[in-house]
């Protein structure tokens, strides 16, 4: 299978006052299409930083990150935005839904930003995906009217609605109870198998790691096991 993500010798430094803190050091990693991979490690190990680089919301200080065939450090802000919109779906630990929009509108948002689909096709796709993640009866509820698990399902639907090549999930079950967390993981696994969408998680939860097909371990900003 071809690689959807290539990380080559990635280094990331953050300024901290007059000091420079190295969050990632010489990380190299390849993720193939269709993988269901977990980046595991304790807090501060650099897994979120690595996800940020792969998710094109940040660029490496040194080294190279290639997503869907494009080297991110050579792209402009506009090109990075376009890459995120068309190739990457995001699932956040705290769901990060737009509170003033209802479930349907939250899921529809990336499609509206893309502007590729007509109203009828867009409606069909959004509705089908909301049904698929099991919150069809909450179509017009706002996020604050939903439970944590339901919100994360909305976030999953939003991440998948554009049919991205890659879905990144930063600690997706951290704010959920174990039963809800397990059902969310089952759902993502199911979608991965059915749609061949690549999923890449960060977690320090062993229950999550057990469901992964591949585990990448990080420690102190370095890859400990790939």
């Amino acid at each position: 299978m071809p690689a959807i993500v290539e990380v080559r010798g990635a280094v990331k430094d953050y300024p901290l006052g007059k000091l420079k803190v190295r969050a990632l050091e010489d990380v190299s990693l390849s993720i193939e299409k269709g993988e269901f991979t977990v980046i595991a490690g304790p807090s501060g190990s650099g897994k979120t930083t690595l996800l940020n680089l792969i998710g094109c919301v940040d660029v490496p200080t040194a080294g190279e990150v290639i997503v869907d065939g494009q080297a991110t450090s050579r792209l402009s802000d506009r090109q990075l935005t376009k890459l995120r919109l068309h190739s990457i779906g995001f699932i956040f630990q705290s769901f990060n839904l737009v509170n003033v929009l209802d479930v349907y509108q939250n899921v529809e948002l990336p499609l509206l930003l893309q502007g590729k689909l007509g109203a009828a096709e867009r409606h069909q796709r959004v509705k089908a995906l909301i049904e698929r993640v099991g919150i069809g009866e909450h179509l017009h509820h706002r996020p604050n009217e939903l439970s944590g698990g339901q919100r994360q399902r909305v976030a999953i639907a939003r991440a998948l609605v554009t049919r991205p090549a890659l879905v990144l999930a930063d600690e997706p079950t951290a704010n959920l109870d174990s039963v809800t967390g397990a059902s969310i993981l089952d759902l993502m696994r199911e979608l991965n198998e059915a749609e061949q969408t690549t999923f890449l998680f960060s977690t320090h939860d062993h229950a999550v790691m057990q469901r992964a097909r591949r585990i990448v371990r990080m420690l102190d900003g370095k890859l400990a096991e790939s």
Partner: peptide, 16 residues
Amino acid sequence: TRELGTLRAIGMTRRQ
């Protein structure tokens, strides 16, 4: 900030 950052992350341009 978080909401605006999220919107940028999911593909909203600076102009939007």
